[in-house]
Amino acid sequence: MRLFLKNNSLPLVFTVLFLISLLGQSLAGWKLHNDEQLAHDSPTVSYARYLVSSDFGEAVVENWQSEYLQFTCFILATIWLIQRGSNESKKPEDAGLESDAKHLIGRHAQRNSPAWAKLGDWRTTFYSNSLLIVMGLLFFGSWFAQSVTGWTKYNAEQRDHDESTVSWAGYLVRPDFWEKTLQNWQSEFLAVATMAIFTVYLR
């Protein structure tokens, strides 16, 4: 057990921080939501109901999508783009796609490599891009979840104000969707650029 904690301390610590933050977000969001309900003479909701509301769901997944986008972009960009002197970047001479020998795939796979690394067909291609593929799928999945929870919230507000509701496709071109999307994206891109350049000069 002690060895497990020691060998996996990085994700474990961040898992605990994630759960504490999510709990705090849900409690603060619940309180805020019910304060707004009372201000509009509307019924309040239980904590359990708030956890499965579009209000909380959108707040959660709109941040998730931008984090997965950050890693998807970082994985993709760092194949070709470099920052000389940064330990977040490859060396300039290593820019570009890496060889099968370096990835230990196809005929360069080793005895203890995963089965898909050895096959040499589409499954090996999938395996050698699996980090990018899975991160990209999580990005598009959470962005989709943001769009439908945001759509539901948007239409609920439209109904409250006796205004017309919109279709899901209609919501995707509304400023509400793009303001929530881009406010998260800009901070992720700023963070990546900052990390790349700061690590050249700062220790």
């Binding site: 497990f4 060998n7 994700p11 579009s54 997944v61 999580l138 959470s142 979840a145 929870t149 539901t152």
Partner: peptide, 30 residues
Amino acid sequence: MTGTRALFWLYVVLPVAGIVLYAVVGLAHN
């Protein structure tokens, strides 16, 4: 190694569960 593999799958299952949950919530409540 089994514990590390379990952590890996946790981080696959956790976001997928959240995404599916809130996609369903969003679609069901509209």
